[in-house]
């Protein structure tokens, strides 16, 4: 095998490894929320993972700064909430979770994900 092919082979393997590490091995630590939290919607949800208390009402204030259409809706399917997020406006979602567990919420197209951990 010529040297260029060896380089491409190694680059390919490294590329796959880096992609895995960058996107899939990414475990963001959750932020503990007591009463309310501002979630910035810009290329994803920030903070991405939050933990809230079971049985207690917590306010999630979504502020969308990203104009792409995919993010204009947020869907908290487990809580039966689908909300439009107008650009640069604070939209509050109130949750009073009755059971504990991990609940993923997404954008309207299921491309961006955030996580609510109920403890």
């Amino acid at each position: 095998m010529s040297i260029d092919k060896i380089i491409v082979f190694i680059a390919g393997v490294v590329g796959i490894g880096l992609t895995y590490w960058f996107f899939l091995a990414n475990k963001e630590k959750e932020i503990e929320v007591s009463d309310s939290v501002d979630i910035i919607v810009d290329g994803g949800y920030s903070p991405e993972a939050i933990s809230i208390a079971k049985g207690k009402t917590t306010k999630l204030n979504f502020i969308r700064k990203d104009p792409q259409a995919c993010l204009e809706e947020v869907v908290l399917g487990d809580f039966r909430i689908r909300k439009q997020l107008p650009l640069n406006q604070k939209i509050t979602v109130e949750l009073t979770p009755q059971r504990s567990g991990e609940f993923v919420y997404t954008c309207g197209m299921n491309m961006y994900h955030g996580k609510i951990i109920v403890k």
Binding site: F22, F23, N26, E28, D42, G43, G44, Y45, S46, E48, D66, P67, Q68, C70, Y112, H113
Partner: peptide, 12 residues
């Protein structure tokens, strides 16, 4: 724009 902001969150 969308890609850059997604990469900041390590998502694609």
């Amino acid at each position: 724009r969308a890609t850059i902001s997604a990469l900041k969150h390590r998502t694609a």
